[in-house]
Design a protein around this nucleic acid. Structure first.
Length: 751
DNA sequence: GTAGTCACTATTTGA
DNA sequence: TAGTGACTAC
């Protein structure tokens, strides 16, 4: 049997699979059979006699983990793959943390706060501390806290770090450290971890190592594999090292990645990890997979041409034997709605000409907001499609409300759940009462729940007092049934007795009925969970259900069998492939995004994103851009993306715009007529700083050593200037954020 | 405490 | 545009 799968590999792939012991690094270009190598590697290990539960495989998405397990099972059969520890960083660590929570002072039924919850905690803290919400923008604060965690800087370490405190003064956010500290304290008080805590606390667990807990995991995980290593951050790598490095360790760690496909630097991923891996494991075997089995020559060539423009990369060139294929089609349109129509028309054409099914086709865009024009045009041609991303089912208000009750039953200290449902449906417990409760909780350093539970000890109006008592009674009554009722029964009781169902039922508007349907859908989902075959020794209680969904995203819902065109962001498309791919909205300021035009590093990441986008295509690739686009409620005029110019004409086929496809009398303002009335004007400059008073000066005649101020990075000194006039790249050493390579053309600076 | 209106403003990617 | 926060009237 072993011959059969090894025969399906090329020489380098086979070496990567068979080199099971010691550190291994696989650099895998797009379409080079990376997943195949990973799965066969696990299969090979199991065949060699390694126990499946001694293998840990960390992936980036649940979907990738699931696919891997399925393919392992298909390769060696017997269903043993189910016992392999394969999952996302988040889900695997959540599982371990549940088992070990008490060792680091968390309850094992801890809640996982999603981004919405985190933001809500932060805006409460900012409001309660009377800080200006415009200066302390929740998104920025959250990102900074996340970055502290990625870099293993605790609130205490933060306060002791002079440089960081200085930086905060410069950023005009001197109270950041206070916010960070109380955010952490509140999460802990609520028995909650945010997404980043799942890694941060995991590290803390292994680092502090209470009861020598780490030994258990050293003994357990004899072989470790990390997929998409280019998208891991410093913290994740440190955890990997903790798991691999110990006296007498065989260092059986295999990382797989591609620096050219690193697209998550914005959330802390760093290519440094790949470089550091080589330093940390000098004896590592390195395999480079460069043969592309996915795409035709034109596409592969274009990808190489594009990525060449990036300055820093591990040299590699992908190649294919799949034949020349057809050149990449470029569509130019006048408006975004015309772009939608042309793409839909072309999809129809491709389906008949190449016998493609809907599911063979994907439309990829930079931002989720772009999906609309394609949805409209596909709908009018009766082509079925599925949009990924955007607001997920579990993030909808009515679903979060319902889950709020369920979360509160399982973990009454969960303050975000409490705040969400304490006055929903309305119980006359208003904002000022909740503020008081929160303040008391802070003063006593107790969860809000223990305040409401003992509300008699506090001074409130009789009306508010009674309302709160009623609420506490309701939750306690539900809690009592946790052990006797399964998740579905209890959820149904909660939905009824809270009055949620009644309230939703009274709303007869279309949106209202939709909400009702969604909540019913959630209850149906819980029923399915209860009825399903238990995985290992799981029970069917509410707590188990909540754990099972807390890290799910929409993409984990399986209805792949449906024949639908895929609409998704390029980020979401990582790891996927389609016979025909449309990459749309190729305009300056959209792709590359105007947010990324400040530094070379950011621009390089946009380019890698484009590289990922085009390498999703197997046979047909179409790139489109529109001269004008409706954005933020107004029409903007854009140049075509620089990325288009980076592909040589040899690989392109530019189609001349034709408006015939529009003249089929469909309703709405046609693209052409819009064009007739518009007067081109200069593009609006990219949105400026968070500090509206910042005035950029025209940066000419800069000198080395000169002091400048950047709207985002603060003050710094110029280290070097390179590049031709008008296109200079300035390297600036900033006081807090370190060295940045700034593109002068777009930079917001003053001298 | 609640509900409704109005004005403002940011604007990317996602486990 | 869409989402939010401040303000007002009951």
């Amino acid at each position: 049997m072993s011959d059969t799968y090894l025969d399906q590999l090329n020489t380098i792939q086979r070496q990567a699979v068979m080199t099971t012991d010691g550190p291994v690094m696989v650099i895998a270009g797009p379409g080079s059979g990376k997943t195949r190598v990973l799965t066969f590697r696990v299969a090979h290990l199991i065949e060699k006699g390694v126990k499946p539960w001694n293998i840990l495989a960390l992936t980036f998405t649940n979907k990738a983990a699931k696919e891997m397990k399925e393919r392992i099972n298909n390769t060696i059969g017997g269903g043993v793959a189910t016992s392999v520890w394969a999952g996302t960083f988040h889900s695997i660590f959540a599982r371990i943390l549940r088992a070990e929570a008490e060792l680091i002072g968390y309850p094992s039924n801890f809640t996982i706060y999603d981004t919405q919850d985190s933001k809500s905690v932060l805006s409460n803290i900012i409001r309660e501390n009377n800080l200006e919400p415009k200066v302390y923008a929740v998104n920025a604060i959250r990102a900074r806290i996340a970055s502290c965690k990625y870099n293993l800087i605790s609130p205490k370490a933060y306060i002791e770090n002079n440089e960081l405190i200085q930086e905060d003064y410069q950023r005009k956010q001197p109270h950041f450290q206070k916010i960070y500290k109380s955010y952490m304290a509140r999460c802990r008080r609520a028995g909650a971890m945010d997404f980043d805590d799942l890694m941060y606390q995991m590290f803390i667990l292994l680092h502090k190592n209470p009861n020598n807990v780490i030994k258990k995991y050293h003994d357990k995980f004899k072989y470790l594999m990390v997929d998409e290593f280019q998208d891991t951050n410093f913290l994740q790598y440190q955890i990997v090292r903790k798991l691999v490095n110990y006296p007498g360790s065989p260092h059986n760690v295999c990382i797989v990645g591609d620096d050219a496909q690193s697209i998550y630097a914005f959330r802390g991923a760093t290519i440094e990890n790949i470089l550091n891996f080589q330093k940390d494991y000098k004896q590592a075997n390195i395999f480079k997979l460069e043969q592309n089995y996915r795409s035709t020559h034109h596409i592969v060539q274009a990808a190489n041409e594009v990525i060449m423009n990036n300055q820093r990369q591990i040299q590699k060139k992908i190649w294919t034997e799949k034949g020349k294929g057809e050149p990449i089609k470029v569509l130019q349109t006048v408006t975004d709605s015309e772009e939608g129509k042309r793409v839909a028309d072309l999809i129809l054409e491709q389906k008949t000409r190449y016998h493609l099914q809907n599911k063979d086709i994907a439309i990829l865009y930079r931002t989720n907001a772009q999906s609309r024009s394609f949805e409209e045009s596909l709908r009018s041609l009766r082509i079925s499609y599925r949009v990924y991303g955007g607001l997920s089912f579990y993030q909808r208000k009515e679903i979060k409300d319902m889950l709020g009750y369920l979360r509160l039953i399982v973990n009454p200290n969960d303050e975000e759940a409490l705040r969400r449902v304490i006055n929903f449906p309305k119980r006359a417990i208003g904002k000022s009462t909740i503020d008081k409760i929160s303040a008391w909780a802070d003063a006593e350093n107790q969860p809000m729940w223990s305040v409401v539970e003992n509300i008699d000890k506090f001074k409130l109006s009789a009306r508010a007092m009674n309302a709160i008592k009623g609420f506490v009674k309701l939750i306690k009554k539900l809690q009592k049934q946790q052990d006797t009722k399964d998740a579905y029964e209890l959820a149904k009781i909660a939905a009824t007795e809270s009055g949620l169902l009644k309230m939703l039922g009274e709303d007869k508007t279309i949106e209202g009925m939709n909400r009702m349907e969604n909540v019913q859908g959630l209850l149906d989902g819980i029923k399915i969970f209860v009825d399903a075959e238990p995985i290992e020794d799981e029970d069917k209680k509410l707590a188990t259900y909540l754990q099972s969904i807390s890290l799910l995203t929409d993409q984990d819902k399986e209805d792949d069998s449906d024949d639908k065109v895929t609409l998704m962001s390029i980020h979401a498309a990582k790891g996927l492939e389609f016979p025909s791919v449309f990459v749309v909205g190729l305009e300056e300021d959209l792709f590359p995004s105007f947010m990324s035009k400040n530094t070379v590093d950011e621009m390089d990441e946009e380019r890698r994103l484009f590289y990922v986008a085009i390498t999703r295509a197997e046979l047909h690739l179409t790139l489109s851009y529109s001269k004008s686009r409706y954005r933020f409620g107004q029409i903007r005029y854009n140049d075509k993306s620089r990325f288009l110019d980076e592909i040589s004409n040899e690989n392109l086929h530019v189609s001349i715009p034709f408006n015939k496809s529009l003249s089929n009398g469909r309703s709405g303002v046609s693209g052409a007529s819009k064009y007739g009335t518009m007067t081109p004007k200069l593009r609006k400059a990219p949105a400026a700083s968070s500090d509206p008073s910042f005035k950029a000066t025209k940066a000419t005649d800069l000198n080395i050593g000169q002091e400048i101020e950047h709207f985002r990075f603060g003050k710094g000194a110029i280290q070097s200037i390179e590049g031709a006039k008008g296109n200079e790249v300035v390297t600036v050493k900033f006081k807090g954020v370190g060295e940045k390579r700034i593109m002068l053309k777009f930079a917001k600076l003053k001298i």
